[in-house]
Design a protein around this nucleic acid. Structure first.
Length: 199
DNA sequence: CGGCTGATGATCT
DNA sequence: GATCATCAGCCGG
């Protein structure tokens, strides 16, 4: 299966549908060191009526990318050190998106490991902070168009996704009951406690 | 494996 | 000044 760039019209407008759609798809970073890529195995949806969504209280300098057309990257830093990659969703101006929570490494694992000595392969891209570090994604990518950017982009599935499970989202203190997290069942690169992600 | 905790700085009020 | 869409390290079972 050759990889193909996802077009904007491929992306479902509904954010929950987008979060499910992205399972199995590919994140590609054609970096100066070579191609770094991974298969998306876990996502979370953040909705307009959702107090956990960064856009919930309206636009600010940080969250502006969530209000762009779907397929734009929303990249921000949490806890002063971890970078989070999101895909903006919905119609332009809505303020909604999907957090990429875990990847299965595809290409560039040697480059990734060179910078993360001592970490097991399964730890490299398990979790949103880790995957951004592994693929060398930085706040400089905030706002770029993942449907057109030459360096960071979304690709078609290299392998068809397995069954998709769902659960509450991880790490939230508000809206903690909503079932808006999606993951590929049985995939060992999925983050969080095993009890949240039954095969 | 699961649970707990401290680190750490950008962001917003 | 408070709040975090997290993680690594450490400990117990």
């Amino acid at each position: 299966m050759p990889i193909r760039r996802l077009r904007r019209r491929d992306l479902p407008v509904d954010t929950v549908a987008l979060a499910r759609y992205l399972i199995g798809k590919t994140v590609v970073h054609d970096s100066a060191e070579g191609r770094l890529s991974g298969r998306i195995v876990e996502t979370e949806a953040y909705l307009p009526d959702d107090a956990a969504c960064h856009a919930y209280r309206g636009p600010t300098p940080r969250n502006g990318s969530l209000f762009l057309e779907r397929g734009r990257a929303y990249v921000y830093i949490i806890y002063g050190r971890y970078t989070m990659l999101n895909v903006a969703g919905g119609e332009k101006g809505t303020g909604t998106g999907v957090l990429i929570r875990a990847l299965e490494p595809l290409e560039g694992i040697d480059i990734i490991q060179r910078n993360r000595a001592g970490l097991r392969v399964t730890e490299l891209t398990r979790g949103p902070g880790r995957l951004a570090q592994a693929l060398h994604i930085t706040k400089g990518h905030d706002g770029i168009d993942l449907c057109f950017d030459p360096s960071l982009w979304l690709g078609s599935a290299m392998r068809a996704p397995g069954k998709v499970g769902s659960s509450v989202r991880i790490g939230l203190t508000v809206e903690a009951h909503r079932i808006l997290r999606f993951y590929e069942r049985g995939n060992r690169f999925v983050s969080g406690p095993r009890s949240l992600s039954p095969a």
